[in-house]
């Protein structure tokens, strides 16, 4: 667990070309955790109960992934996007509002990949009375690839006068 510096981020303190980053390393256990978020509702507590039956998929089964021509079990795209979303929600602080985020999945994210999640401020503007920060967001892996690349839009508060 990493702790985050959770300060209010004000619009006035953000400039184009500002950069921020976080590290991430999704494991097979975390992928199983992702796929079973809804398990408590189905009565599985993870303590002494049987693990819910997970379908055999390329997300947890390396053998099946290999059969499908993949180099190994892959991290679900939505989970990779969630990890990149976390970069932005951590950065924007408790009063920032994430308005939108969109990504392209360009390369596979494999279990145990060492990922750098990077955000870059591309614009700051006022839009319909709201102060908006536009970001480029992407992930880099240790193979020099950018498996996810996209943009996000965040609304930040003004610093009180």
């Amino acid at each position: 667990m990493t702790t985050i510096d959770f300060q209010i981020r004000y619009f006035e303190d953000v400039d184009p070309a500002d950069e921020f980053e976080e590290a991430a390393q999704p494991t097979t256990d975390s992928v199983i955790g992702w796929l079973t978020v809804d398990a408590p509702r189905r009565g599985w507590t993870g303590e002494g109960d049987e693990q819910p039956d997970l379908p055999r998929t390329r997300f947890i089964d390396a053998e099946l992934a290999l059969e499908q021509g993949l180099p190994g079990a892959i991290v679900p795209g939505a989970m990779s996007m969630a990890i990149l979303t976390k970069l932005v929600t951590n950065w924007m602080g408790p009063t920032g509002k994430l308005r939108s985020i969109e990504v392209d999945f360009r390369r596979l994210v494999l279990h145990e990949d060492s990922l750098r999640c990077i955000g870059l401020v591309t614009d700051t503007l006022e839009e319909d009375g709201a102060s908006i920060v536009k970001l480029d967001v992407y992930m880099e892996n240790e193979r020099g690839e950018r498996p996810l690349q996209g943009t996000a839009s965040v609304e930040l508060p003004h610093r009180p006068e």
Partner: peptide
């Protein structure tokens, strides 16, 4: 469960 899966520590 979600926060644990993606190591989410946002208070």
């Amino acid at each position: 469960a979600y926060c644990e899966a993606v190591d989410e520590t946002n208070p």
